[in-house]
């Protein structure tokens, strides 16, 4: 018999069917190939199932993320969720493609001033470069007091946008770090 990858020549089910006299193939138990016979849901083979939440709109549907060999093999609705009872909309149902798709870039890219192409640079180097630019821009554009002597303690030369797609913990660190650097123009989609 063949395995289900078809790596050896199969015995055609139709012949088996004839042999068993099941002419109209009404019974899969005789007509099924070995692949068919061993068919099972891939989620069953998962190493673990991880509780999650849909990342699209704000309804917050429950998701279950199935992981096998440290790879996501399926994402579907969490039936236990009172928010969604296991349902997902088309976007939620596409989450698997969102997080595993080939569209995702996994390198840090750098476009130098007046450059026409991206250049790959190491993550650590990029982090150093950004930190250095934040410091320089902050130092060069510090506002200590307004014209009436009121304290400002800030820089208006650096701004931030984003947050509504991020975690609370991330927003918290963003607000904490940027405020303490004197960056006040911290904004997100809530206003857009």
């Amino acid at each position: 018999m063949s395995d289900h990858n078809g790596s050896s020549a199969p015995v055609w089910p139709v012949l088996r069917q004839f042999a068993k006299g099941d002419l109209f193939a009404l019974d899969g138990s005789t007509a099924g190939s070995s692949r068919t016979e061993s068919l099972a849901s891939r989620t069953k083979t998962a190493d673990r199932v991880v509780g999650s939440v849909c990342p699209y709109c704000a309804v917050g549907c429950g998701q279950l993320v199935y992981v096998k060999d440290e790879k996501i093999i399926d994402i579907e609705g969490d039936p236990a969720s009172p928010v969604s009872n296991g349902c997902l909309c088309p976007k939620g149902a596409a989450t698997f493609q969102l997080v595993t798709g080939s569209h995702r870039v996994s390198d840090v890219l750098y476009r130098r001033p007046h450059g026409t192409e991206w250049e790959k640079i190491p993550l650590e180097q990029a982090m150093d470069m950004v930190a250095e630019r934040v410091k320089r821009t902050r130092d060069e554009n510090w506002e200590d007091r307004d014209k009436d002597g009121n304290p400002l303690r800030r820089t208006m030369a650096i701004a931030h946008l984003g947050g509504a797609t991020l975690d609370n913990e991330e927003n918290y660190l963003i607000k904490k770090l940027f405020t303490n650097l004197g960056i006040v123009q911290v904004e997100n989609q809530a206003r857009i």
Binding site: W12, P13, V14, L15, Q17, A25, L26, D27, G28, S29, A31, G32, T36
Partner: peptide, 10 residues
């Protein structure tokens, strides 16, 4: 279906 590829399942 001439090949028996299409079956009625359980």
């Amino acid at each position: 279906c001439p090949t028996g590829a299409i079956i009625r399942t359980e």
